[in-house]
Design a protein around this nucleic acid. Structure first.
Length: 952
RNA sequence: GGGCGUUUAGCUCAGUUGGAAGAGUGCUUGGUUUGCAACCAAGAUGUCGUGGGUUCAAAUCCCACAACGUCCA
């Protein structure tokens, strides 16, 4: 993280408050402290937490939600008093971004468009308390005493543009605000604060930064982001080159929960922010009875020391648990806390789980509250992972409370009054479903484990690594679950090999790294010269079909993804050809001059230019007349507007979590992918379809407006970006009454009624948590209906019945077919019996073995049935040779097992001798051989060869 | 977005090297029992997910599709 090479941060505020600049003897970082003798920066392996049992922030006696609320309010109020505008937090699902799923910091709200300078911030300067979720340290939550997956980042931001004379404040004022907040609002003595200079870089940006350390805990970071990565940059940091950027951003982050902890002085952060849930879970899990076994043990002292130790020990992930325990025991003993290994385990293990649960519930409630649907990919997977972790923690603790009930309790206590997009019942319903699916996984897992372990000796003590990897990756069974379930199933000595967890994590990291290598796509044309952007006529009038324009450039096509026959891209000064985008396919049509007509095979967009893909060229400066294939365009518009209407209808029928996960509109049909936690039934589809068609009649006109992003966000929120995050500052918004409002660059009908009708043909699961609706509208709907009719007609014509009798008749035919097939099999067997039992020419006997050599009809399957009749009766030792002329000739030979017949005859050897007569081969077991050939005419010879072979 | 797995009787699942589709449970009938549970005996139930391919022969090998599940980004 550290990038050296920046000048010292020497501010007047430091000097006036009595701070001196020193270098840390452990980290080498420069820091400011009022204590001239201090030689560590405050955040090192030698700086212990000093606030545990001795709160450093005064005046906040409450705990839990009340503490967080008070702390947040104090922070925001302070910055409002110094001219910052308070803004509402953004969702934890970062739907305005396509590079991250979750909001990981307050600055994430303003990336990438505000931080790049393209979009105005909602206020400037501003203050916010942004709920964030980071899952990278999920393993440490509960164990370390301080890690959280979900936290609020309190912040003050300023976006300066010194070139435009817009300078709000920079380092000096920023640190001054911070210092005043810490010392006056929160009453922290200046001597307890160290300001550490530690430059920051990440995500293509960099800048000087100051960490604010209080009592060994980093409470805040102040970043002065003023550089961006650039190959020609004149500042080198950590091997990358940076240059100054026009925007200079104050990016701060104050950890709300850490402030709460420093104010409460509790042994761990969890007791400060989730005291009710922790107490409840202790109760439910019977923790108090465990800890009361040892009345001589001071639990608070133990936990406090644990947190202090955790704070200074940088525990690498994957450190062996046994080793870690011995380190802790040794160091606790050094501090005068005597605890046995048994006591340590009995107390810390359940407690770590109790602490993690409210944290996970908090993150989960935020995510689901924002309308996320759990699934097995993308952001949904993160929610499922948290839900399953919580369930396992709960099960490990032996708590028998449904997940939904835990969440309900958590929300009532910790998230009261929080506005959520998802309904309360919807959220609990999703959790019930998740618990059901988890239970199902465990149940199936038991079977899978037994099957996988079958080859393993019952007294084995380890499971092969490959088996553990496989069970984890393919069946979701974590190694410790495998061991536990395996022990129940009889492998009582099983244990997890030391160091296995770390190896599995490494292996996953390696796989992820390999997968990260992106495939670069070749551009459509080599270069586009400096030209004005093409004027898009289709926005002014979606009905316009013809236009005149002049040719600005013609470029040969080089990309691979071009329509067949297209050789060149024509760029015009204006066009009403819609280029492929937003899931809507490009227009086709014609470009012509007086002497030349070129068919437009597809239309694309590169930058601000519309590329008409044609076979042939024009001269630059030619005046062309363009006309679009209107039937195609009309159909594409039908589907596009219909997709929006169906999306709105689905939201009304299924709930607020319905979000567009993708869409495509072609001439044949429209496709809409929506997020939902269950498969859709036909009656769901019917309900959506009905509402969609009602909208066609009710909404007279669609409303198309263009807003800048700041106003669009404010007016409509982030549901606008269902079709993906748009790039520019200007956003086109399509509003279909209150039914559906989206940012969309496609072409849409002014009057929805022009679509005619909408049919939802079917739904398919494109991935877990995402349903794909296939939609036909307008002419395509009519075509679809006709095609369906035709299918029905053709099917019923086969039977010669009216179409409404089709289901009944088909059912009857199928039942009869099954029955008759059975009868035929029985009859065939009967024929064989008759031909062989009567002692006819097909059957004879040699020394107590019945010999049956005969030609039959049928394939190998039927012949097998016949052979069964002949050779399965041990009381009648038999050698049977059957031949058929089907499919090039088939031969099958069987002898009754474990009888004199099988002793005397070898079916495979006999087959090999006679098969050449039908020019074939085959094989099998000594009691059953089968083969085939390519010369059915030789069957008679083959059978007589068999006769002479056995001596008939 | 990438990886992996599963799909066989109503249900839960076996099926080894490609060579005669199985078990447990449930079901039907009969027996035993005061009744239930249990037990004994006999029996029925299969588009081996769908569609192609390889092969004399495919539940098994290959390809595509579908449904379901799972790990990771």
């Amino acid at each position: 993280m550290c990038c050296m090479g920046l000048p010292p941060i020497d501010l007047a505020v430091f000097h006036s408050e009595g701070y001196v600049r020193k270098q840390c003897r452990i980290t080498d970082l420069w820091f400011w402290s009022t204590d001239a003798t201090r030689d560590t920066c405050g955040d090192t392996s030698e700086d212990e937490y000093t606030f545990i049992g001795k709160p450093l922030i005064q005046g906040f006696a409450m705990r839990g939600k009340a503490l967080k609320d008070a702390m947040r309010e104090a922070f925001l109020t302070f910055f409002e008093q110094v001219e910052h505008t308070r803004i509402e937090p953004y969702p934890v699902l970062a739907r305005w971004r396509d590079d991250i799923h979750l909001t990981i910091a307050s600055i994430a709200d303003f990336q990438p468009h505000v931080t790049s300078g393209d979009v105005e911030p909602p206020a400037n300067p501003l203050t916010i308390s942004q709920p964030c979720i980071r899952l990278t340290d999920v393993d440490a939550v509960g164990r370390s005493g301080r890690h959280l997956t979900t936290f609020e980042m309190m912040a003050h931001h300023a976006f300066n543009r010194p070139n435009d004379g817009k300078l709000y404040y920079w380092m000096e004022e920023c640190v001054q605000y911070c210092h005043e907040l810490m010392t006056s609002t929160f009453g922290i003595p200046a001597g307890e604060i160290t300001y550490v200079e530690n430059p920051w870089c990440g995500g293509g940006n960099a800048g000087a930064a100051v960490e604010v350390i209080v009592g060994g805990l980093e409470l805040a970071t102040l970043v002065f982001m003023n550089m961006e990565e650039h190959p020609d940059g004149d500042i080198e940091l950590k091997g990358d080159r940076y240059r100054e950027m026009p925007l200079q951003i104050i990016d701060t982050g104050y950890g709300l929960e850490r402030f709460c902890w420093a104010a409460a002085g509790t042994p761990t952060i969890y007791e400060a922010i989730y005291p009710e849930t922790v107490a409840w879970l202790k109760d439910l899990s019977g923790f108090s009875t465990i800890s009361s076994q040892w009345p001589e043990l001071n639990l608070d002292a133990l936990l406090g020391e644990m947190s202090r130790l955790n704070g200074i020990m940088n525990i690498e992930p994957g450190v062996d648990a046994v080793e870690l325990r011995s380190i802790f025991l040794r160091r606790l003993a050094e501090r005068g806390i005597s605890v046995t290994s048994e006591q340590f385990t009995a107390i810390t293990e359940p407690l770590a789980k109790i602490y993690a649960i409210p944290d996970h519930l908090h993150a989960l409630s935020h995510m689901l509250g924002d309308g996320l649907v759990p699934s097995n990919s993308k952001a949904g997977y993160l929610a499922r992972m948290l839900a399953r972790r919580t369930l396992r923690l709960r099960d490990d603790l032996g708590i028998q409370v449904p997940l939904a009930e835990l969440a309900q309790h958590h929300i009532a206590v910790n998230l009261d009054g929080q506005s959520m997009k998802q309904t309360h019942d919807g959220l609990l319903g999703i959790l019930e479903l998740e618990e059901e699916r988890y239970g199902e996984m465990i149940r199936k897992g038991g079977n899978v484990i037994v099957t996988q372990l079958k080859g393993l000796a019952k007294d084995a003590d380890t499971v092969p690594d490959e088996t553990l990897f496989h069970l984890n990756d393919s069946h979701g069974l974590a190694p410790d679950m495998v061991v536990a379930l395996g022990q129940n199933a009889g492998w009582t000595n099983l244990q997890i090999r030391t160091g296995f967890a770390a190896e599995m994590a490494e292996r996953h990291a390696l796989i992820a790294k390999q997968a990260a290598q992106a495939v670069e796509q070749k551009p459509l044309v080599e270069t586009i010269p400096q030209l004005p952007s093409t004027v898009a006529l289709y926005y002014e009038d979606v009905q316009q079909r013809e236009f005149d324009a002049s040719v600005l450039a013609v470029r040969p096509l080089v990309g691979e993804d071009v329509p067949e026959g297209a050789t060149h891209a024509v760029i015009l000064d204006k066009s009403c050809f819609y280029p492929e985008g937003g899931g809507q396919e490009g227009d086709y049509g014609l470009l012509s001059t007086d002497s030349k007509h070129l068919e437009v095979l597809d239309t694309r967009k590169v930058g601000g230019h519309i590329l008409h893909l044609v076979c042939g060229t024009f001269e630059t400066g030619d005046l062309v007349h363009g006309s679009i294939d209107w039937n195609r365009r009309k159909q594409l518009m039908d589907h596009h507007t219909a997709v929006h209407i169906v999306g709105g209808a689905a939201r009304r029928v299924l709930g607020p979590h319905i979000y567009q996960a993708g869409a495509n509109k072609s001439v044949e049909s429209g496709r809409l992918d929506i997020t939902h936690f269950n498969r859709l039934s036909r009656s769901d589809l019917d309900a959506i379809e009905s509402i969609a068609n009602e909208v066609l009649g009710q909404v007279q006109r669609t409303e198309k407006t263009e807003l800048n992003r700041k106003d669009a966000d404010k007016k409509y929120g982030f549901d606008l970006y269902q079709g993906g995050a748009p790039k520019g500052n200007s956003i086109r918004i399509l509003r279909i009454a209150d039914h559906d409002i989206q940012a969309c660059g496609g072409t849409h009908h002014d009057e929805p009624g022009q679509i005619g009708s909408i049919r939802i043909v079917r739904s398919a699961a494109v991935q877990d948590g995402v349903e794909r609706l296939h939609i036909v509208a307008g002419q395509a709907a009519l075509n679809y209906a006709r095609k369906q009719d035709e299918l029905l007609r053709k099917a019923s014509d086969v039977y010669g019945i009216p179409t409404h009798d089709l289901p009944k008749t088909t059912e009857r035919f199928y039942a009869e077919w099954k029955e008759q097939r059975k009868t035929i099999e029985q009859l065939e067997a009967e024929i064989v019996r008759l031909r062989t039992s009567g002692g006819g020419s097909d059957s004879s006997e040699i020394d107590g073995v019945r010999i049956v050599i005969m030609e039959v009809t049928g394939d190998l399957k039927k012949m097998t049935k016949m052979l069964k009749e002949l050779t399965l009766d041990a009381n009648q030792p038999t050698l049977a040779v059957l031949g058929s002329r089907e499919g090039g000739g088939k031969l099958m030979i069987a002898v009754t097992e474990d009888t004199v017949a099988s002793e005397r005859y070898d079916a495979v050897a006999l087959l090999r001798t006679i098969a050449p007569h039908i020019k074939g081969g085959g094989g099998g077991r000594p009691t059953l051989a089968q083969g085939g050939g390519s010369y059915p005419e030789g069957l008679d010879e083959a059978l007589s060869a068999a006769r002479s072979e056995v001596g008939l």
